[in-house]
């Protein structure tokens, strides 16, 4: 495939070459169509399922069938309250909880890691490099067992069942790699800029907030997107540290697909919830694509 592709590029405008070129283009469009079909079919199925009556996957038509059309799953998500005095429907409350955690996490991670990245890029101090590398390494330790320790720390500090404190764990997890990225980025900013500012009387904090932060926008964008995404997809920590009244949206969705929880099991409700959750996140990801591609390249180059 690739061979024909590059062949075609080089082809001179002779008749045979033109045929080959058309053939190559045809092949490439065919390939793209197949890939996009494979990508889209499960997603379309998800949408169709979320709009189908009942609670059985077998009732989901392969082709949109308007006799089975219903909005009941979306109605369920936006009206169902497990306790009648709850301020919000369960799904909405769980969504808002996840959103709060995500927003706070974004702020916390950006502030923490840009500060540490700044310090690591601009100052020489004892143990700088071993510190960073050992933290990067330590994070590869599989942490399921450590969950017990985290649970006890949360209990000791009285943080159990309070989603907002999950931010501490997410932030702690994000610091090493992000510090590494920010440090790499800030090293590419000429040090003469902050020297000039220092001569003009700017304090180090001022240099950081007024000069470094604005200059590091691309990498900060990447960090911010990642920090915003992490809490939505996390299942383990909220599952262990929060009770059902304080669940996040990931737990809520998972519960809808677990056949053992008969009260909530309804894969079609899940499909609707998955769409409500996935659409805004997907839009944010695509909207922030520029930063993400940049950050990925930076990460890949740094290894």
């Amino acid at each position: 495939m690739s061979a024909s592709l590059t062949n075609a590029v080089a082809g001179k405008a002779s008749g045979a070459a033109r045929t080959r070129r058309a053939l190559a283009a045809g092949l490439q469009y065919a390939y793209l169509t197949i890939v996009c079909t494979v990508v889209l079919v499960p997603l379309v199925w998800m949408v169709v399922a979320s709009l189908t009556k009942g609670k059985l996957l077998s009732g989901v038509p392969l082709w949109p069938d308007f006799s089975k059309f219903s909005l009941e799953h979306y109605t369920y998500l936006f009206t169902y309250k497990s306790t009648s005095n709850a301020a919000f429907p369960d799904f909405v409350a769980a969504f808002l909880r996840s959103l709060t955690v995500a927003v706070v996490n974004t702020g916390a991670v950006v502030l923490l890691t840009t500060l540490t990245g700044y310090v690591f890029s601009r100052f020489r101090f004892a143990g700088r490099k071993p510190l960073l590398i050992s933290f990067l390494l330590l994070q590869m330790f599989p942490s399921f067992m450590g969950m017990i320790a985290i649970f006890m720390i949360f209990r000791t500090f009285g943080w159990l069942n309070q989603p907002i404190y999950l931010v501490f764990i997410y932030a702690a997890g994000a610091v090493p790699y992000n510090t590494y990225l920010v440090r790499g980025y800030m090293r590419s900013i000429p040090i003469s800029i902050d020297e000039a500012a220092t001569i003009d009387g700017a304090s180090r904090s001022k240099v950081f907030f007024r000069i470094m932060l604005p200059l590091a926008t691309p990498i900060i964008g990447f960090i911010a997107v990642n920090a915003f995404m992490a809490p939505w997809m996390d299942y383990m920590l909220p599952f262990q540290l929060l009770n059902m009244q304080n669940q996040t949206v990931a737990i809520f969705l998972y519960r809808l697909t677990d056949p053992l929880i008969t009260l909530y099991y309804n894969p079609l409700n899940f499909m609707a919830g998955a769409i409500v959750l996935a659409v805004p996140i997907t839009l944010v990801q695509i909207w922030m694509q520029r930063f993400i591609v940049y950050g990925m390249a930076a990460g890949a180059a740094k290894g």
Binding site: L43, W45, M233, L253, A274, I281, T282
Partner: peptide
């Protein structure tokens, strides 16, 4: 279109696939 699977939260897509490979799935 091709980056959609990456943009969708993986937890969501994995659970969708679990349903797609269900006995009555897609």
């Amino acid at each position: 279109i091709m980056i959609l699977p990456w943009a969708i939260p993986s937890l969501v897509s994995l659970m969708v696939f679990r349903n797609a490979f269900d006995k009555d799935g897609l």
